[in-house]
């Protein structure tokens, strides 16, 4: 595979649950070394698109290629996948170490335990992510940022070229979301290709150099400076959006409605 062949390639992909199409005629490419975010409102098909890439769903029409190979069952190339944190069973009896080692399963020996080099790789990654001291802890005893790092470590254990993260910044506070994105930027600098889904436009715009705006179909793609304009955002979110420029930052908000709760609850709220 050449250096510039796309790592992820969708060709006219359609998908629907039952009769209602969730994704319509999606064609997109992600090249090696890219760091991109899928943005769009809830129900836009962000998670569905990621699930197609991972082989958890099959397109009703079109082709999905990862690493140049069609995805049948699962990608042939190792992909580091970090699911949404709220999909994890936090009461499950596993320690940080046990979760992280799961990522090594493709390289694992036949006997029940992992090899010494797998343990060494794990320690290395935990140190790199600053969570080596949590190794023996139960996963419930972690903060949101630590949880995200543990699952990122598991993904990196697979030695993937491509990292896919489903909503890595949701369910954590703003400071933690910031840290997670800085970590991803660092991994991207080290050569990992990264695709995340997020509904947090402003944080994504400040950290991710490429955006796919999704709302059933691919509305637009490009660097945040080109994509975060009112015309595109209105089509993506089907709402009136306003882009505010502040100290060189681009901030996106839903346009104020010209009414307040006083108008909506006039008889309940004392004037």
């Amino acid at each position: 595979m050449s250096r510039h062949a796309p790592l992820v390639h969708l060709e006219n992909v359609w998908f629907g649950y039952g009769k209602r199409p969730v994704l319509r005629a999606i064609s997109l490419e992600l090249r090696p070394g890219q760091f991109a975010a899928l943005v769009g409102p809830s129900g836009a098909g962000k998670t569905t698109l990621l699930r197609l890439l991972l082989g958890l769903l099959r397109p009703t029409r079109g082709r999905v290629l990862v690493g140049g190979q069609p995805v049948e069952g699962r990608p042939t190339m190792p992909v580091g996948y970090v699911p949404q944190l709220n999909a994890i069973d936090w009461t499950f009896p596993v320690t940080v170490e046990q979760v992280v080692l799961m990522g090594r399963l493709r390289h694992a020996p036949y006997w029940p335990w992992y090899r010494r080099q797998d343990h060494e790789r794990m320690v290395e990654l935990l140190e790199q992510l600053g969570i080596a001291h949590l190794r023996g802890r139960h996963i419930r005893e972690l903060s949101g940022g630590q949880q995200q790092r543990v699952f990122l470590a598991r993904a990196l254990m697979a030695d993937p070229e491509l990292l896919i993260l489903d909503e890595p910044t949701s369910g954590v506070d703003m400071h933690t979301a910031e840290q997670v994105l800085h970590l991803l930027a660092e991994l991207n600098r080290q050569g990992k290709t990264i695709l995340i889904s997020t509904h947090d436009l402003n944080t994504a715009a400040a950290h991710v150099p490429w955006m796919f705006c999704l709302n059933g179909e691919l509305v637009a793609q490009g660097p945040p400076e080109q994509v975060l304009v009112e015309e595109i955002l209105n089509r993506t979110y089907r709402a009136d959006m306003v882009v505010v420029h502040h100290n060189g930052l681009r901030l996106v908000y839903q346009k104020p409605h010209g009414h307040s709760y006083h108008d909506l609850l006039a008889d309940k709220v004392p004037p």
């Binding site: 082989g55 990608p75 699911p83 999909a87 069973d89 799961m102 399963l105 493709r106």
Partner: peptide, 23 residues
């Protein structure tokens, strides 16, 4: 259970992610 310990653990914990990681 010994032979498939790692696979059983991953599948029980999170079957979908286990699938992506080759189980």
């Amino acid at each position: 259970i010994l032979a498939f310990y790692k696979h059983l653990l991953f599948t029980t914990f999170d079957a979908e992610t286990a699938h992506v990681y080759g189980v």
